[in-house]
Amino acid sequence: MAETNQRTVYGQTLVELCHKNKDIVVLDADLGASTMGKMVESDPEISEQHIEMGIAEANMISTAGGLARAGKIPFCSSFAVFAGGRAFDQIRQSIAIGKLNVKICGSSAGCSDFGDGATHQSVDDIAYMRVIPNMNVFVPADANETEAVVRYMAENEGPMYIRVNRNPYDNVTPEGAKFVPGEPVVLKEGTDVAVFACGVMVTKALEAAKALEGKISVKVVNVPSIKPLNRESVVKIANSVKGVVTAEEHSVIGGLGGAIAEALRLEKKPIEFVGVQDRFGASAHNYNDILEYLGLTTDSIIKAVEEISSKA
């Protein structure tokens, strides 16, 4: 069976890419054992391509900007709350304005670091990365897609953010599929309601569609590229159904829901958001508990689909 953990695949893919391209460097802020940057560090042939920056995320991001100016392709990894949140100004000022070729990995994103609680759970990173001009924001649905996105990031110029889950779960996208930035991907056809989902919520959207079979025909759309996002594609999909639901492991403010609503602003389609309701996360003993606590469940999607279906 293919690897099912996104951060493992992130590390494995970087190891492979580092072997092929000596200009790729992988920066960590003392969390390499979690981000899997340690896989690069512990491979003797490429260990020099791993740069330990210590517990200093702001300096890590700006230093990566300098490395990019010197022709390197830096991948900076930390927990999403630190990689994106703590270093927001550095990403904006040092990286994005100058369109520097820096890749940022928000690891253990969403609530996937369930035990550590609110301080370590990113319910807002899609929003604050998405709003920065020049920044690309990618949220792979699973481990397979993570590999495709990381390859794309290494091979293409510009500042890019990838959001990576900490926990393993079964792949829902095919192994080896090409990642096309901007394009939503229909995973399951349907005619009544389209569920646009990203990250772990793609899995739950597929489960919801299955549970509703025979009652409501649900189209499941994976959105790995939150930005860029091809508006025409979103509109076309939305106009093939009667209503739309978005589902994300993120605040309902400013994330995938926001992006889809922006794209559909002239379409007069009913939309419902499934996501975190303007609150922080909390510690939990396991991943499912925190997802349920925040309403990030298959049932929430089913309810939202039923509601939209009844309105449409």
Binding site: N59, A64, R69
Partner: peptide
């Protein structure tokens, strides 16, 4: 200074 440090490190 961080940006300069990054350039120096790359060089």
């Amino acid at each position: 200074l961080s940006l300069g440090s990054g350039i120096a490190l790359g060089l």
